[in-house]
């Protein structure tokens, strides 16, 4: 069972629709016990970083998430991916979960339209179980104005948007983050969710 964390700031709806469609057992929860007994955890998120971190702190789940991230697969999606990093400067400085070393800042380029919204191609730089059984080219659906800045070693795939934007990241162990929305990225996005469930087994 995958625990989908409900902290009032995520768009759980489409993630859950996708999991249901794939027949992947999941539970939407803010209960630490459910997270402890889950095989894997998904951290969704939309909106602004500090507001989302505040909501997450308000659930009292931050320590539970950190402990679980050390022993079972965790996938952060969109803002949920950004929250895995050390900090963000969206609307002022704010600490993240610190599960992946790196920071989140506004997309730098002045030459492109912000938000970065639409289908962009993943440039895969590292093998990952999350990308197995997916044929190239892999386009995924992005909607965001801030991006991660981290060591290349943490990056499984990036996309080009007048500069590199980390698209799929990992701590090298159990933690993964997708800047894009796998649940809105067609069949290949769904395959990534299947792959994530495989990891949890």
């Amino acid at each position: 069972m995958i625990a989908v964390i409900d902290y009032g700031a995520g768009n759980l709806f489409s993630v859950c629709n996708a999991l249901k469609y794939l027949n992947i057992a999941h539970e939407v929860t803010k209960d630490a016990d459910v997270i402890d007994r889950a095989d894997a955890v998904i951290l969704p998120g939309v909106g602004a970083f500090p507001a989302a971190m505040d909501s997450l702190h308000a659930t009292g789940l931050v320590d539970t998430i950190k402990q679980n991230a050390a022993k079972k697969p965790l996938l952060g999606i969109c803002l949920g991916m950004q929250m895995l990093f050390d900090r963000s400067d969206e609307n002022g400085d704010c600490d993240g979960l610190g599960l992946i070393t790196g920071e989140v800042h506004r997309i730098l380029s002045k030459r492109v339209i912000i938000p970065h919204m639409g289908w962009n191609e993943l440039v895969i730089t590292q093998e990952s179980p999350l990308l197995s059984n997916i044929e190239k080219p892999v386009f995924t659906y992005f909607v965001h104005s801030y991006q991660a800045f981290c060591d290349d070693k943490k990056i499984i795939a990036y996309c080009e948007y007048d500069g590199r934007i980390p698209a799929l990241v990992t701590d090298g162990k159990f933690v993964f983050g997708a800047q894009y929305h796998p649940e809105k990225s067609g069949e290949k996005g769904l395959q990534m969710l299947r792959n994530f469930e495989e990891l949890a087994r």
Partner: peptide
């Protein structure tokens, strides 16, 4: 539709 279609 949102239960079956996984594009925007």
């Amino acid at each position: 539709t949102a239960k079956q279609v996984f594009v925007p």
